[in-house]
């Protein structure tokens, strides 16, 4: 679209200028980047060990003493039957923790956008002849990049920890791309929703209140931390539609198993399709909401 004097309205140019600005700010502020590493470490090392369900299996049940090998067998059975065959609880947990980190970083990542409104930067760019879509999508991309970087850090921390993430046999680059592709679809969808929300609210207080209200149910009705097998039926039904469950299941399937059987491939494909549809839907809903929020009032 021609704007004036031969200058072209350039969605990609606007998008890259705004995204570059946000990422430069992020990289230049060590206080924003470093805690990500420690958050990953704390979640995986502390949560992964302290909540490890195989650690609470008693060796003596009503006077019946299990030998150490029997105890190990019980633990392995729990992991293989309830936790999808994961070698360790952290192997099961990693995909869930990455999802959890994505959700919370997406949700609170909007604070930068609210500050842009409060400090007047948003008005400065709204008075420029740029596409409104570039403001929305730069918010989506910057949030996604920041959260996905933390996702990669979490993955690396989980692998490096002793008794941490033990990847399935044959896990290769394609599986890595598949697992993080599923997580990226979830990240995109969440980023669309939370970016639109951040562009719509006027204060950080409002954003934090809404985010707190929305994120906890979202996480705890998913299989991020625990499998759905023992959920009550109503929770299982909700969990089944929860996109976090789909992303966790897809990424976990690849991380735990590496090479997938044909039935696992089908299950992975359905999860990916669900996430793709969810991402498109949230992209459209977020775009419409952001457009409304950015229109002159």
């Amino acid at each position: 679209m021609l704007t004036s004097g031969g200058r072209q309205a350039d969605l990609l140019g606007d998008l890259s200028a705004l995204t570059r600005r946000a990422l430069l700010k992020w990289i230049r502020n060590p206080a924003a980047v470093l805690p990500g590493f420690f958050t990953a470490l704390f979640y995986i090392a502390l949560f992964g060990n302290s909540f490890n369900p195989t650690g609470i299996v008693p060796s003596n049940i009503n006077g019946f003493q299990l030998t150490s090998s029997e105890l190990e067998e019980v633990k392995t059975a729990i992991l293989s039957q309830t936790f999808g065959g994961a070698a360790t609880y952290i192997s099961y947990l990693t995909a869930g923790i990455i999802c959890l980190i994505l959700v919370f970083n997406m949700a609170f990542g909007g604070i930068d956008l609210v500050l842009d409104r409060q400090l007047g930067f948003l008005n400065t760019i709204l008075a420029a002849p740029i596409s409104r879509a570039s403001i929305y999508f730069s918010g989506v991309i910057q949030n996604m990049v920041k959260a996905m970087a933390l996702g990669f850090i979490t993955f690396a921390v989980a692998i490096l920890l002793p008794n941490g993430l033990m990847l399935g046999k044959g896990f290769g680059v394609v599986d890595f791309v598949g697992a993080f592709g599923a997580l990226a679809l979830l990240a995109f969808a969440l980023s669309c929703v939370f970016t639109a929300l951040a562009l719509s609210v006027k204060s950080i207080d409002s954003l934090v209140a809404i985010v707190n209200f929305a994120t906890f149910p979202l996480v705890f009705t998913s299989t991020a931390l625990f499998p759905a097998a023992d959920f009550p039926s109503w929770l299982k039904a909700i969990s089944n539609f929860n996109p976090i469950t789909k992303a966790c299941n897809a990424a976990r399937l690849l991380m735990i198993n590496g090479m997938l059987s044909s039935s696992q491939q089908i299950s992975f494909g359905w999860d990916l399709a669900y996430l793709a549809a969810f991402a498109v839907a949230m992209g459209v809903v977020g775009y419409l909401a952001a457009n409304k929020a950015l229109a002159p009032r």
Binding site: T3, R7, Q8, A9, D10, G13, D14, A17, L18, R21, L24, K25, R28, N29, L119, G120, F121, N123, T124, I125, A127, A128, P129, I130
Partner: peptide
């Protein structure tokens, strides 16, 4: 537009703020 608020980005250099606005004005 020169608004009442000081909207230049603290984390960017002076010249980077100018270049950013230049890009956004094509």
């Amino acid at each position: 537009v020169v608004p009442q608020e000081l909207t230049a980005d603290d984390e960017l250099k002076g010249v980077e703020n100018l270049m950013l606005l230049g890009k956004l004005h094509h």
